[in-house]
Design a protein around this nucleic acid. Structure first.
Length: 575
RNA sequence: GGUCCCGUGGUGAAGUCAGGAGUUCACGCCGGCCUGUCAAGCCGGAGGUCGCGGGUUCAAAUCCCGUCGGGACCGCCA
């Protein structure tokens, strides 16, 4: 039907008779005898010169046959890759007429209400930006698969209809027709199956796995998302990190044409202490600075009782941040759990601040020295428990300093040595798993289980790119005595463990190899590498924040007959 | 469950704080003119229940209450 793609025609094609197919973009008509039609396909745009009277409108689908020719002097368009040439003597075949689109099929649609874009996603996807994103995603998928195969991984598909599991994210339930009242769950991840594949002797498993979680949607979260899911037998943490790094760096190279440097590592504690988050964006500084000792004997009450005091410096921020903005930052800090936020505008002779009168000269000098603050800088200080102080400043650091996603270098980092336990269960008071209950404790910390459980580190790790958590993994416990010890610390009795996890752990009795794995979110990786702030831009048919699809109108009301067959009845809304 | 922002012809915006006739701008659409444009140009035209419902008022796009939809965030996402 066609001999070339629209976007590939160049000077070298001059003189050739070609046929191209595509959609009518802009057209410039000069009467019955001359019209310029921009024909567009996924590869780009070519100008067709039509000198007979054909009625072509926006987004008509055409097949154009003509001769590629040099554009006349003075009419070359440097803004277009095909701008040196045009197709002349055009025979136009209208393959399909079209209704005018609700929004322009070009970059101007970036500003169109996202609901309208999603309603007509097939038109939105016709645009250059979206075509590019789809193709970057495809390249990344292919590179990841190639890399995994080259490293000896076996792709195994696992079921989508799985048993509901007691812990973790809220699940989507699928009613059973044969057994009304019983439900399958859609997998929040293939966790169960991939570990059993290790018991099965697969040795190295991977899958491009669709995962589903019924939790509230965000810019980086959809109900359904894709993970590169993998698991390896007879390995250490280094083996897993190396294998994942290889796949990710190959994917990055496929998307950007440049292979990133080897991925650095940082302990969870360092990340929290220096950046206030477990997913630090290393593209910019503004690190958290320790100020606790500076205020060891302070008169200022808000600081005197605090366990940890830290600050961040905003270069030149004193003028930039007015009272209104500082109030907003304070509200933000409070909403994140801080008791307040102290701001200090650095002047020649001290600090301009509501709390300046409570600070001694020594304290002012010490803060300036520790923070490296000079006149015109803004210093933000939080005083609280170590974790709260770090977390609040970490969020403020991101709010204030974080560059747009498409800017700056790609900074990958492995965060290692996550704590085994994080926080406590509200009801039982027992510690909660940081990663999941099957995560291997750090061998150096096993004797701290009784004395200081919250200080026990784990062999768990996250991969972070420019402040996005791409994924996480761990070495798993394969040996029952240690697993019992962890369950005990979690406050899970042997009966409860058997009830909750028996179907999963009993197979280990038949010989579970030491194993560990990882899973990373492809949507997020693609988004960052495509320079998109939002994963919806790299998903062909995403859902809105309320979980709806404006194009298909899903979800829709259940059909009464189908519901009856499933034994389902909808209760009236409560309240 | 909560906080904040947004909703005005097909699209994007201004108008809302400070109530006074559906007012304005750009794009698109329809018709006419036009043989080198590329956001073509010029002339003319059509197109809106100001998301929806209620309230206040002589009068509501504008103020108040509710609701729906979209977005950002907190909670949630082992």
């Amino acid at each position: 039907m066609r001999t070339h793609l629209c976007g590939e025609l160049r000077s070298e094609h001059i003189g050739q008779t070609v046929s191209v197919c595509g959609w009518v973009g802009r057209r410039r008509e000069h009467g019955e005898h001359l019209a310029f039609v921009d024909l567009r396909d996924h590869s780009g745009i070519i100008q067709c010169v039509v000198d007979n009277d054909v009625d072509v409108r926006s987004e008509y689908v055409l097949r154009v046959t003509g001769v590629v020719r040099q554009r006349p002097e003075g009419t070359i368009n440097d803004g277009l890759p095909t701008g040196q040439v045009e197709i002349g003597d055009c025979a136009v075949e209208i393959l399909r007429q079209a209704t005018p689109p609700p929004f322009p099929i070009d970059a101007r649609a970036d500003d169109v209400d996202e609901n309208v874009r999603l309603q007509h996603r097939y038109l939105d996807l016709r645009r250059e930006r979206m075509q590019r994103n789809l193709r970057i995603r495809s390249k990344i998928n292919a590179a990841v698969r190639d890399s995994m195969h080259a490293q000896g991984f076996v792709e195994v598909e696992t079921p989508m209809l799985v048993p509901s599991t007691p812990e973790g994210a809220r699940e989507f339930l699928v009613p059973s027709r044969k057994e009304p009242g019983s439900f399958y769950a859609l997998p929040q991840s293939p966790q169960l199956f991939k570990q059993l594949l290790m018991v099965a002797g697969v040795d190295r498993y991977y899958q491009m796995a669709r995962c589903l979680r019924d939790e509230d949607l965000r810019a980086d979260r959809q109900y359904e998302f894709m993970q590169l899911d993998m698991e390896m037998s007879f390995v250490t943490q280094d083996d897993v990190l190396d294998a994942v790094s290889e796949a990710v760096l190959a994917a990055a190279e496929a998307a950007t044409g440049e292979r990133p440097a080897p991925i650095e590592r940082m302990s969870w504690h360092d990340a929290m202490n220096r950046f206030g988050v477990d997913k630090p964006d290393l593209r910019f500084g503004m690190e958290l600075v320790e100020l606790t000792d500076v205020f060891a004997s302070t008169e200022f009450k808000a600081f005197a009782s605090a366990r940890t005091i830290k600050g961040i410096r905003v270069d030149g921020g004193a003028d930039e941040f007015g009272r209104n903005q500082l109030d907003k930052l304070t509200d933000r800090a409070k909403s994140l759990g801080a008791k307040g936020l102290v701001w200090l505008k650095c002047t020649d002779d001290g600090f301009d601040s509501p709390v300046a009168k409570f600070l001694s000269d020594d304290e002012v000098a010490a803060v300036k020295a520790e923070m490296g603050a000079e006149t015109g800088d803004l210093v933000l200080v939080v005083a609280d428990e170590w974790e709260t102080t770090c977390e609040v400043l970490g969020v403020l650091r991101n709010d204030i300093g974080r560059p747009p996603v498409h800017e700056g270098p790609y900074r990958y980092v492995w965060i290692v040595e996550f704590p085994l336990f994080v926080g406590h269960d509200k009801e039982t008071g027992a510690p909660k798993s940081g990663h999941h209950p099957f995560t291997m404790p750090h061998p150096d910390d096993v004797d701290k289980f009784e004395t200081d459980p919250m200080a026990v580190r784990s062999i768990a790790y996250d991969l972070v790119l420019n402040g996005w958590e791409l994924g996480s993994g761990s070495i798993r416990i394969h040996e029952p005595a240690l697993q019992r010890k962890v369950f005990r610390a979690l406050g899970i009795t042997e009966e409860a463990a058997e009830r909750k996890f028996g179907f999963f752990l009993n197979p280990f009795e038949y010989g579970a190899p030491p194993h560990g794995g990882f899973a990373f979110g492809l949507d997020r990786l693609v988004a960052v590498l495509a320079g998109e702030e939002n994963i919806r831009e790299v998903i062909a048919f995403p859902k809105t924040q309320s979980g709806a699809d404006p194009m298909t109108n899903s979800p829709i009301a259940g059909d009464p007959a189908a519901m009856a067959e499933l034994g389902l009845k909808i209760l009236p809304p409560s309240t």
